[in-house]
Design a protein around this nucleic acid. Structure first.
Lengths: 224, 224
DNA sequence: TTCAACAAAAGTGTTGACACTTTTTCGTCG
DNA sequence: CGACGAAAAAGTGTCAACACTTTTGTTGAA
């Protein structure tokens, strides 16, 4: 078992637990039992504890001292809040990318996007990741790629996105990339914000169509 | 020692270490030694380890497996990146607050601001915190209050802000509050973004006036 | 003198045991 | 029969010891 490990055990356990969350083996809002996970992964409780602490730092798990750790229950309200944050941050992300990207990098992004559009296998999220990486702002990139997208994956694993939005997303992404190519940072930011705000509106509609069940869910706090 | 503790030891150690950072007892970029801190606080290495992990999650400490943990060295470039992120997020924060605040809450904020302006003791940051809390978006509030402001405090502890900006900040805050009172979310967001962008420009100037020393500092990575 | 290999030291990663807190269960009293 | 309280169970917090990795310091040869 402990032959040679580049990444630390904590990181490996972190990945494994996150996989469990995405696969739904631990349901949203379910309890995260340290001892059970330690037994399952054949490691001690220490690494599991730290991995859970790491998940807590990523806001994927919430807990209080001596209380059971629980997987964050991503309500529609939570998702709306995340999308509001994304709208602001991704707007700035594409603004900075438009200002900072080299012509070569921009052309490469455009051609990669065209390829993905033909092959139909490139996930829509990849465009956002590429833009975040090209923003040149490591903190924005980390917030989007290392934190918010984890939550998005977790949410989509339970309730996939609207079926009609896939095609719209391609067209909206294409418009954003054209604005970037034209070096119009203001336009690129506006388009990106509208792009995300549209998804937020869909969530708002979802919330209204479900306003009969669990009105108390809006009062959840996300420990930091 | 272990008489009665509401907060867990980890949280207490976290606070103590952060105080050490703000006071400058551990210099920026300095090494964080687990054993030494455990000895100093009269606790075991375990809580110190988790507290450092927590600081790492907050991006106040960076480290790699088996390597020494180091306090993040907040360069001017890092600060610019943080301000770019703040510009986007605080813009959204004040937009949401303008839309969501009750008339009573808004009046209370305005009167509290007037009081602080007379007493001269209210820190300028408080306005931003109040707005973030009023945004109704717990994730935005957490990002601003629990993460970015920690870094700001750390940076200001070493190199305080520009002396002339204090007075300007009051006037700019006042304009923002008036836009909120008028329920003009677009204007409030624009003013907030301009307010923060002004500080970012000051940092850019600072960077240019120091372009001779340490040009390699721009290649720092912030582990997430 | 300089470089490489080896040995010692310092520091981090991991583990299992123990202490404390919370929750559940069960018995007793009203 | 229901409510209150104590004991047991489950689970988390803390600790000290051990294993592994990195760094430092020394020795030897080219």
């Amino acid at each position: 078992m402990a032959v040679k490990q580049q990444r630390t055990l904590v990181d490996q356990v972190f990945e494994k637990i996150f996989d469990l969350l995405v696969r739904g083996e631990i349901p949203l809002g379910g309890v995260v039992n340290e001892a059970a996970l330690a037994e399952r992964f054949q490691v001690s409780r220490g690494p599991v504890r730290e991995a859970v602490k790491h998940l807590q730092g990523r806001a994927l798990v919430v807990k209080e001292p001596y209380l059971k750790a629980r997987v964050v229950d991503l309500s529609v309200v939570d998702m709306i809040q995340i999308f509001q944050l994304r709208e602001a941050v991704e707007g700035m992300s594409v603004r900075l990318a438009t200002q900072n990207m080299s012509n070569e990098g921009l052309d490469r992004l455009l051609s990669d996007f065209s390829d993905a559009l033909e092959n139909q296998d490139g996930p829509a999220l990849d465009v956002h990741v590429r833009i975040a990486e090209a923003s040149g702002n490591s903190r924005i990139r980390s917030l989007l790629c290392d934190e918010l997208y984890y939550l998005l994956r977790l949410y989509r694993a339970r309730s996939g996105d609207a079926p009609g939005r896939r095609q719209n997303a391609f067209s909206e992404h294409w418009q954003i990339l054209r604005a970037m190519k034209a070096r119009d940072a203001d336009l690129a930011e506006s388009l990106m914000r509208a792009h995300i705000a549209r998804a937020t509106s869909a969530l708002h509609d979802l919330l209204e169509s479900r306003d009969e069940d669990g009105a108390d869910q809006s009062e959840k706090r996300n420990a930091g």
